[in-house]
Design a protein around this nucleic acid. Structure first.
Lengths: 240, 240
DNA sequence: GCGACTTTGTTCCTGCGTTCACAAGCGGCT
DNA sequence: AGCCGCTTGTGAACGCAGGAACAAAGTCGC
């Protein structure tokens, strides 16, 4: 592999040597991984960038560029060895280790996520559950029992939880977040519709389900040219 | 991760004024809306771009530019009138109408989403539920009863469903998607970890929960400089 | 073994989105 | 009434991501 030219991020004292892989590419790599494992199950051992790109819904040039960040694991004239590619994408994404997950807030959504097979299947075993509700404490759920949120720091540290999933209502989310951070958790997936304040060394990804719908709503209105009550939108009239 | 699978802007008669609002801005507007309504509940009537940007976790210049797409509803030297801003963002996003939702696949996740209060609270009432399982058909759930997937086209058309939420396993997702499209649904929120094939006039947003974790995992590895088993990550990637 | 074909990996370029910076505008204060 | 300070809205620059095109490289057929 030729040396990439993306090194130069002298953003201060501690040059961050990482940063070579764009965030958007990382997100797509997770998709490729999914498609590839699915293909391997069907016995596919080799794929061209064109085919894989089609299955993943991206441009083939984009795909090749993304994969170039992983390394040169393709064979010209043939394509990519699916098994080897999966292996190397997993290594880049840090999936060689199983990251254990804690789910906080065992309501409808938390319950569903605690049982979501896609997590353990992808190497993310759920190893801790927390809630505030006394009635839930101790209740067994998928081989685990629910602990009180107060024990988050201790339990997370003990079980080496690396990812916390917050499914609490908004008012509790920041408190829970602080507890997770106290327990050494540096990755948080936040389903509560609010922006969490965290230290610089903690990363939060927010999944805002209602916002997703609002975005869909916007595009729908755009497509139809109506505001949904049969009335044509006049953008100029609207803005004054 | 939310993947925007198609940004098609069909060549309509009135495509001149549209396309002004970037996709990324629309996504952020939904966040601003959330912060604003929360602030209004606390009695805040006026906010500066600086404060609002801080609460939403974005740059203030970005925020002002986003809001400029909505219209000029700020007062220089003062800030934005929160109520008026909410009103106008909602209008831009097409939220003046309540879009009704159908949830397909009443497993753990589908069950949780069917009961998710954030949907109706934000003007997205759930008006139809579907599953394949005979044991679930007719079961009442939050004021609705579960219908068979075969009836998707008829029921969606009748109840004017505008958004379909797919929570089925992967093998069923494409079939369900086709049924939704047949029922006139043009917006789909897909929780099944696969890429759906749809006509150009249908928009799909994908929420891939496991991919979110993989992205977190990647950044975690980057931060620590180890792959989680105490071993330094590939020095080539590190050195550039 | 050699040529032609296929596909990768990379380079260049274009376009978009974000950020900076500043002029215009509005309210408050004297 | 006029000035001052604060905040918006926007024009310009910058940086990054995505797409087209191409050269290198490896395979398959003959």
């Amino acid at each position: 592999m030729t040396v990439h030219e993306h090194g130069r991020y002298s953003t201060g004292i501690q040059d961050l040597p990482y940063r070579a892989v764009p965030d958007a590419a990382v997100a797509r790599l997770a998709v490729y991984l999914r498609v590839l494992t699915s293909m391997i199950e069907q016995g596919v051992t080799t794929m061209s960038s064109e085919v894989l790109a089609g299955a993943a819904g991206v441009n083939s040039a984009t795909l090749r560029k993304d994969l170039s960040h992983v390394g040169s694991y393709g064979t010209r004239g043939v394509g990519y060895d699916t098994a080897r590619l999966v292996e190397n994408i997993e290594r880049l994404l840090g999936l060689t280790r199983h990251h254990s997950i804690a789910v906080v807030g065992i309501g409808n959504l938390g319950h569903a996520l605690a049982n979501y097979p896609g997590f353990p299947d992808r190497g993310f075993p759920v190893t801790a559950l927390f809630d505030l509700d006394e009635d839930l404490i101790g209740v067994p759920l998928g081989g685990l029992s629910v602990d009180h949120v107060d024990s988050i720091p201790a339990v997370c540290a003990e079980r080496e939880v690396t990812i916390g999933v917050i499914c609490t209502p908004v008012p509790a989310a920041q408190v829970v977040c602080d507890l997770l951070v106290a327990g050494g958790v540096q990755c948080i997936l936040n389903f509560a519709p609010m922006v969490l304040q965290v230290p610089d060394d903690v990363e939060v990804r927010r999944v805002d389900l209602a916002a997703e719908l609002q975005i869909l709503s916007f595009h729908q209105v755009r497509r139809c040219g109506t505001n949904g009550v049969g009335q044509v939108v006049d953008p100029i009239a609207v803005s004054r």
